[in-house]
């Protein structure tokens, strides 16, 4: 262990950095696209099943296949990896946002509208705050997916902890495989934990106290 860190320590830090970089931007892109889209879909129920169905289909495409498909379109490196992982983060965030906002008590929506809120105010002041726990759990799930699958991004030259694992596989070196796999698991768990704290912070007070 200590010997492993002495040999690969600095490289490990670089790889963790790359891994986080890819995952972060993939997730950020996912949130920026899927949350507004999910909210928008609650206004168009017919389009909702189409889009969520589409996201589900994308989810079922093997991740390696998506990464491979990126190569002819976007080439290799970090950018195509980010795009591919973004596709994976879409479904959980989109579905949770849509369901969370849709399931806000219709009486509260009625009251908010009846008091004279604009559609935008209804969304920002009522629907999103009340749906926040559900939206956040979608983002958490998306984050864990993205960090786990970012390992495969190594295949298209994006770097990250996948490099250790695949090198280890090629060279039959167990310490390299573990040196990649364990940090990935830890990263995923840590991210889930931190986002969990953020979720509690963002949740409405009345829901927080019940927990």
């Amino acid at each position: 262990m200590i010997q492993f860190l002495q040999t690969y320590g600095s490289e490990l830090m670089v790889k963790i950095g790359e891994h986080l970089y890819i995952s972060f931007f993939a997730l950020l892109l996912g949130v920026v696209v899927a949350v507004p889209l999910g909210i928008l879909l609650t206004r168009f129920h017919k389009a909702a099943s189409f889009f969520i169905g589409l996201a589900s289909i994308l989810q079922t495409v093997p991740s390696l296949a998506i990464l491979a498909l990126m190569i002819p379109v976007l080439g290799i490196g970090k950018f195509p990896a980010i795009v591919a992982l973004f596709v994976y983060s879409l479904l959980p965030i989109l579905r949770n946002t849509y369901l969370g906002v849709k399931n806000v008590d219709p009486n509260l929506k009625d009251a908010a509208k009846g008091m004279g809120m604009t559609t935008m105010q209804q969304i920002i002041m009522v629907e999103v705050p009340l749906a926040m726990p559900v939206i956040m759990s979608g983002i958490r799930l998306g984050a864990v997916y993205v960090i786990a699958w970012a390992t495969l991004a190594s295949y298209i030259g994006a770097g990250g902890l996948g490099d250790f694992i695949f090198n280890g596989l090629n060279l039959y070196q167990t310490d390299l495989i573990l040196g990649g796999a364990i940090p990935v698991t830890l990263l995923a768990m840590l991210t889930d934990f931190l986002l969990g704290i953020l979720e509690t912070k963002l949740s409405p007070v009345f829901l927080r106290t019940e927990k």
Partner: peptide, 20 residues
């Protein structure tokens, strides 16, 4: 309609206070 509703009080059976 938005300005109209701000000038008319609205009370419903389910109360509709915003819980957050």
């Amino acid at each position: 309609p938005v300005h109209l509703r701000r000038g008319i009080g609205y009370v419903i059976q389910q109360i509709g206070l915003l819980p957050h």
